[in-house]
Amino acid sequence: MATGEQASPPGLATRRSLGKRFRDAIAPILASKVALVGLGLVSFWVVVAIFAPLITPYGPLEHDLEAMNLGPSLEHLLGADNLGRDLWARLIYGARTILILAPLSVFCALAVGATLGLISGYFGGWTDEVVMRLLDAIMAFPAILLYLIIIFALGPSATNVVIAITIAGTPGIARLVRSLTLDIRTREYIAAAKLRGENPFYIMFVEILPNARGPIIVDAMLRIGYAVIAIGTLGFLGVGLPPPAPDWGSMVAQGRIYIWINPWPVLWPSLAISSLVIGLNLFADGLREETMRYQ
């Protein structure tokens, strides 16, 4: 029986092996130069953070009194601060902190926000109205204000920083996921799922969520960038991690006092934050353009 366009085009694999899946997943990254540059910047920090003890002979809290306030030298690659602590060591140990806290807080916000957004968008009606009004109210706060009052209420600590960023980030994510849900909800495969009598949570989490992942991942990258700045800012304001943890923001705050003698302790962590955030942004931009092209 002859049928239209049955012949399968050559070159399409019949089985999707794990390797192929992986290649499929990273294809858009490799295709975009912008995304690659971004990925490079981010991976630089990830790698130095992971291998921190192997990369520097100094500990982040170790004092070298002879090197106090000295600029970059062979001994101390990036110089040392006013207490003679090696800046490179502090920088890469600081990267550890920030690379755990920032993604963690965004992940928490994602879990809460995506759930609320799905529920709100899928059910609509009163549920939607109540959830969105509440989230609107949280969103009305300038983020830093919310961080300040939450940390003021709970006290400065790593956990509370994560809680603060989670609360502040949830509404934005929920809004995004809700709008994606509203769009995907009208797709025909959702109707097909309803016609199989699937329960709403299966539809939300299995049928809708995976198809919203593109924009969510892009958004999450940008949010990790914001979180890095936020954690830095809180550190700078002295309400982030308690000292003497090697936190990029508080490094700047301490270095600031001696800036007219030795600007390096301010320069390096500032550059570190900028480069990490730029990397995340470029990565997100590249990813967004590529996924749009794929659709």
């Binding site: 025909e188 016609l195 995976p210």
Partner: peptide, 23 residues
């Protein structure tokens, strides 16, 4: 469920009739 099974539908838009995430 038994009634649901007996009534199915085919849709207009080939690009949205299948869930893009699943084989």
């Amino acid at each position: 469920k038994r009634l649901v099974k007996e009534l199915q539908m085919i849709f207009q838009n080939p690009d949205s009739t299948l869930n893009p995430s699943f084989s």
